[in-house]
């Protein structure tokens, strides 16, 4: 008979890091579903802290207040990808531009990153999870069994971002402007001292520029299946 069907263990940690516009969110969600895994949206955690900081009128550089704010928070991801903090559904609240700005600011604070490091590891306990972010494979889950670094060329990422904004009705920025913003962010992300965006040494790099969403997910599944765990 043919070789036994190789099963993917139910408790892996799969990380997907990469720059904005590489298609991480959709691909992570679809991959998680294919694997029967949970999906960990780490960006949502930073956004939630950003929301709480805004609501509490906490300055993004007030480390003491931020530390206090982080104490005793309870995060719960919902089946549809939503997020509850201390029992409150914040899914719709954390997607505003104001919260985005605040999330970005607080994510630069070591006190927040340290706190969320534990939260993320806690949420991933038991494995069976696809974790999406910018430092998953390098900092948060260095021991993850499967690591992907999802990238796409600047042109493609700018076009995707432009199209996304446009289809949401925001026509304020030109393609050229968006390309400039992304290039600046790329530079900041990869050059900052605190958790710079870079592929882990053992990450598989996938370029999504010329691939469809499904093709990327299929490729990832193939790579996972080929591994010996």
């Amino acid at each position: 008979m043919a070789q036994a069907i190789k099963r993917i263990p139910p408790d892996l940690i799969v990380t997907i890091d990469g720059p904005a516009g590489a298609g991480k969110t959709t691909i992570s969600k679809l991959l998680a579903r294919q694997l029967g895994y949970r999906y960990l949206d780490t960006g949502a955690l930073y956004r939630a802290i950003g929301l709480l900081a805004l609501e509490g009128k906490t300055g993004p550089d007030d480390d003491q207040a931020l530390a206090g704010l982080c104490q005793g928070l309870e995060f719960e991801f919902l089946a549809d990808g939503g997020l509850k903090v201390n029992g409150r559904d914040v899914t719709g609240l954390i997607r505003t531009p104001e919260v985005s700005m605040m999330a970005s600011a607080v994510s630069a604070r070591p006190v927040v990153r340290r706190y969320l490091l534990d939260v993320q590891r806690d949420l991933a306990r038991g494995g069976g999870i696809v974790a999406e972010g910018r430092d998953m494979g390098t900092v948060v889950f260095p021991e993850a069994q499967v690591k992907f670094f999802l990238d796409a060329d600047l042109e493609t990422r700018a076009l995707r971002r432009y199209e996304q904004l446009r289809q949401r009705g925001d026509m304020s920025a030109s393609l050229e402007e968006i390309k400039r913003q992304i290039a600046v962010r790329d530079r900041n992300d990869s050059s900052r001292n605190l958790a710079p965006l870079r592929p882990a040494a053992d990450a598989v790099r996938i370029d999504s520029s010329a691939l469809g969403i499904r093709q990327v997910v299929d490729k990832m599944l193939r790579i996972i299946k080929e591994r010996n765990f």
């Binding site: 959709t26 969600k29 549809d80 990808g81 969403i213 499904r214």
Partner: peptide, 30 residues
């Protein structure tokens, strides 16, 4: 690449497409 498997019914919930659309517009799949 989906031509093989036309004997099967489609995903009635349209899960993948709905998930991608929700992500595109920052909405819930529901």
């Amino acid at each position: 690449s989906r031509l093989e498997g036309l004997n099967r019914y489609p995903d009635g919930a349209g899960h993948d497409l709905i998930e991608a659309l929700a992500a595109r517009f920052d909405l819930r799949p529901s």
